[in-house]
Amino acid sequence: MDITVESIVFLIFGVLTLGSALLVVTTRNLFHGALYLMASLFGVAGLFVLLAAPFLAGVQVVVYIGAIAILIIFAIMLTPQVTAMRSVRTAQWPVAVAVAVIFFALLVSVVTPLMDELGVDDFAADFTQENPPDVPADSLVRLGEQLVDPQQFMLPFEVASVLLMAALIGAVLLVWPEGTRSTPPGEAGDD
């Protein structure tokens, strides 16, 4: 593999993603954690751009960084953080480290050509390719069409919208202040 501009950019985004992610799960201050999460998500957005999916990168920035991360920050601020907490980690954290490492090793052994080169298996044979065909220029248009095409993704698309609506209503209902709960819909009855 040659050192190209692209590979350097990939390296930057990959390190940004993984490094911030590592900080997300290790930092003591949860608010900082949320900011690192935004950085990590931004790194993923960069990877999407590299993968010729600028639309998804945009969505990633808007939905994840713009909405979900902000939502998380709200939640952090709404729930007072106990600074004098004994530990931010559970008692089982060494096991968790071991599990995560083993899991990673397992995945690496499958997706990288490492085992291939050692002659153990050839799972990664397809994964070494470097030059896939170009993405058609109208792919975004076609994606949009497919999402509302009854033969393709229209039903999942509609279901997803219903799911979003249900999540919206559910979230509102869950955090409804308990004292003021005046017969929410569903429990209403003539009794």
């Binding site: 593999m1 992610a21 899991f103 990673f104 990664a124 994964f127």
Partner: peptide, 22 residues
């Protein structure tokens, strides 16, 4: 960049997430 590198990043991200959840 070859495909497996992206997969590596994804695997790493997933494992970090797994650690965090646990």
């Amino acid at each position: 960049v070859p495909l497996w590198m992206y997969l590596m990043v994804a695997a790493g991200l997933f494992s970090i997430g797994l650690y965090g959840v646990l």
